[in-house]
């Protein structure tokens, strides 16, 4: 069976997901969070000496046992298809390849952050990061 790990994201929304937040790409360019494109992440990772983009496919989304405000999203990460589950607030946005920001509850994301967002679904391929030369 593939290795499994689990990550818990802190129970608050980071400020950089609020619409209008200024994000610096690896080449120094500044963009608003709502204007980011898939290519911005890919190009930034290419410049980075430590980080590389991995594809993380959503395999399962279920409610958290801890709180109704949380969801557990299970990803299959990278070429090794390692199973990683992440417990996040339902409004926590992930960036889906070719699509943009998506969350388990896009209505809440739009309400709380004003960040345009679509519904995160099983089969979506999200952008995630791993270390280069990790072995």
């Amino acid at each position: 069976p593939p290795p499994t790990s689990s990550t818990v994201v802190p129970p608050s929304l980071p400020p950089y997901f609020i619409k209008g937040s200024i994000i610096q790409l690896a080449d120094g360019e500044l963009k608003r969070v709502e204007d980011l494109k898939t290519e911005d992440f890919i190009q930034s990772a290419e410049i980075s000496s430590e980080l590389k983009i991995d594809s993380s496919t959503v395999e399962r989304i279920e409610g958290s046992h801890t709180s109704p405000n949380f969801a557990v999203v299970q990803f299959s990460v990278g070429e090794h298809r390692a199973q990683v589950s992440v417990e996040v607030l339902v409004e926590y946005p992930f960036f889906v390849f070719g699509q943009g920001w998506s969350s388990c509850c896009p209505d809440r994301t739009t309400q709380l952050l004003e960040l345009p967002c679509t519904k995160l679904s099983v089969g979506d391929v999200c952008i995630s990061l791993t270390l280069k030369n990790l072995r």
């Binding site: 290795p3 997901f17 937040s21 200024i22 969070v33 995630s128 990061l129 270390l131």
Partner: peptide, 19 residues
């Protein structure tokens, strides 16, 4: 105005490598 690095927006999912 605060400026945030691009990689802070991306979840860091580093699975244990089995090989």
């Amino acid at each position: 105005v605060p400026v945030f690095p691009w990689h802070s927006l991306v979840p860091f999912l580093a699975p244990t490598q089995s090989d």
